[in-house]
Every structure is written in structure tokens, then in C-alpha cells.
Simulated scan of single mutants.
Amino acid sequence: MAEEIKEKLSRYRTAPFDSRFPNQNQTKNCWQNYLDFHRCERALGAKGSDVSPCQWYRRVYRSLCPIEWVTTWDEYREEGTFPGKI
């Protein structure tokens, strides 16, 4: 399974269509993938598992989200004031 994910990551170009977010505005898609990445890292890291499958979410949010948003959210997480549930 990990090799299948690595193969998909190697062919990755941009965020694929997600039917949960069919509109042109992809703000919610960006936010959800940011949360999913950090939730995935936390969950797999706590189990001591390989966190490489989480890289999918990272690539998606990095292609959708403005860098300023990600920087701000990272700062909020470090300060402990992040508004999302990770």
C-alpha cells in the first residue's frame, strides 16, 4: 500500500477534483486538507507508523492554499491559538 501511495505522489501534479467541494471557490478545500494533513501526522505519529501517506494532504493544501494563509496557520499552531481541531 505504501508503494501505491508513493507511486501516486510521484505522478502528482495539482489537486484533483474533490466532489465535496464542487464550486470554483476552493477555500474550504484548502482548509480541510490542511487540517487532514496535521490530523494524519498526529495520528500516525502517535502510533509510531510511517507518516508518508500524509504527504498527499500536504501536497494538495500547498497547491490550493496561499502561502500567507499557511504561514499564519502554522504560527497559530505554534502559539496554541489555532482555531481548528487537529
Rank of each mutant, 00 (worst) to 15 (best):
M1Y: 11
A2K: 15
E3V: 06
E3S: 14
E4T: 14
E4C: 12
E4N: 10
K6V: 09
E7I: 10
E7D: 12
E7P: 00
K8N: 12
K8V: 08
K8R: 15
L9E: 06
L9H: 06
L9G: 01
S10E: 11
S10G: 03
R11Q: 10
Y12D: 02
Y12K: 02
R13S: 11
T14A: 09
T14F: 14
A15P: 00
P16R: 01
P16H: 00
F17V: 07
F17A: 10
S19F: 08
S19R: 12
R20I: 00
F21T: 03
P22G: 03
Q24P: 03
N25D: 15
Q26L: 05
Q26D: 02
Q26Y: 03
T27R: 13
T27I: 10
N29K: 14
C30F: 01
C30V: 06
W31K: 15
N33M: 07
Y34H: 12
D36V: 03
F37G: 01
H38G: 00
H38T: 00
R39K: 13
C40S: 00
E41A: 07
R42C: 07
A43Q: 12
L44G: 04
G45L: 02
A46Q: 13
K47P: 00
G48N: 06
S49M: 11
S49C: 11
D50R: 09
D50T: 05
D50L: 04
V51F: 04
S52G: 00
P53V: 06
P53A: 06
C54S: 04
C54K: 03
Q55W: 10
Q55E: 15
W56E: 09
Y57A: 05
R58N: 08
R58T: 04
R59K: 15
V60W: 04
Y61C: 05
Y61W: 05
R62A: 07
S63W: 02
S63E: 09
S63N: 13
L64K: 01
L64H: 01
L64G: 01
C65W: 01
P66D: 11
I67C: 02
E68L: 05
E68I: 09
W69T: 08
V70R: 04
V70W: 00
T71Y: 05
T71E: 12
T72G: 02
T72R: 15
T72Q: 13
W73M: 09
W73Q: 09
W73R: 06
D74E: 14
E75Q: 14
Y76N: 11
Y76D: 11
Y76R: 13
E78L: 04
E78K: 15
E79D: 11
T81K: 14
P83W: 11
P83I: 08
P83S: 09
K85S: 14
I86S: 07
